[in-house]
């Protein structure tokens, strides 16, 4: 029962935080430097890991697909399989998981320590709502950066699949053929669906991480616990949301 109350309390605080942040939306332009800084942290610094992960996810997909499909002569469909899987599902989910692990944990840790060391209280005393200067720029930044990270992830993944398809002896699929089937079976709508999903995931990950960070009570030990909880909740949320968003978008 207590657990259920905690979950409800967590949802409630996240919704309230969201409401407050949206209420401060007009102030975003005045906080432009903060927004840029968050864009840098969320987007630019996450790019290398996104590129590496996407490349290998695309490669492994092509490898597995080629291995399974060679027995019934459907190798030329590897392009469409890798393309659709990356764009519709793996691209957004993987980027969201990376953002949760790399950015979400940092956000929670930062806000939790500010809370624990009473910096948040100090801000509130000065009538500076934390939702305005700490949460709003992050939410705005993640909304701008998630599509950029996801599209890079998608394209790098496709490229990885194409390289593996060409240089694996039992697949040996020319990149022209790979991209031809990719183009034939894919629409821009598929990519757009992925970007929308990534947007939803990123937004909720940052919201949940900010909320858990700001709700931290206690000392330094609670900072670690908050970070762990934020990452776990984010990962669960990504997969649960994935199902519902996919169902809505299909």
């Amino acid at each position: 029962m207590k657990q259920l109350t905690n979950i409800c309390a967590g949802i409630g605080s996240a919704v309230l935080l969201l409401g407050k942040s949206i209420g401060h939306a007009p102030t975003l332009l005045r906080q432009w430097p903060r927004f840029i800084e968050q864009c840098y942290l969320i987007g630019y610094t996450t790019l290398p890991i996104v590129a590496i992960l996407s490349f290998f996810i695309g490669s492994v997909l092509a490898l597995q697909a080629g291995y399974s499909m060679q027995s019934f002569g459907a190798k030329e469909f590897i392009g469409s399989l890798v393309g659709l899987s990356m764009a519709r599902e793996l691209g957004p989910v993987m980027v969201a998981i990376l953002v949760a692990g790399r950015v979400g944990s940092a956000i929670t840790a930062e806000l939790a320590s500010m809370k624990v060391y009473q910096e948040i209280d100090a801000l509130e005393t000065m009538n500076i709502p934390p939702s305005r200067i700490l949460v709003l720029p992050r939410l705005a930044a993640v909304l701008v950066m998630m599509p950029v990270l996801t599209i890079i992830g998608d394209l790098v993944g496709w490229l990885g699949g194409a390289i593996v398809s060409k240089y694996t002896p039992f697949i040996a699929l020319e990149p022209e053929k790979y991209f031809e089937t990719l183009r034939r079976f894919m629409k821009f709508k598929d990519v757009l669906n992925g970007l929308e999903k990534a947007e939803v995931f990123g937004f909720f990950v940052v919201l949940v991480c900010c909320s858990i960070g700001l709700e931290t009570r206690g000392g330094p030990r609670e900072i670690g616990a908050s970070v762990t909880r934020a990452v776990v909740v984010s990962l669960i949320l990504i997969l649960v949301l994935d199902y519902f968003v996919t169902k809505i978008l299909i």
Binding site: C39, G43, M145, P147, V148, I151, D154, L155, F188, V191
Partner: peptide, 12 residues
């Protein structure tokens, strides 16, 4: 970075 993302979306 943002421009790169927009360009890639446009390419796709």
């Amino acid at each position: 970075f943002f421009l790169l993302g927009v360009a890639l979306i446009w390419v796709a």
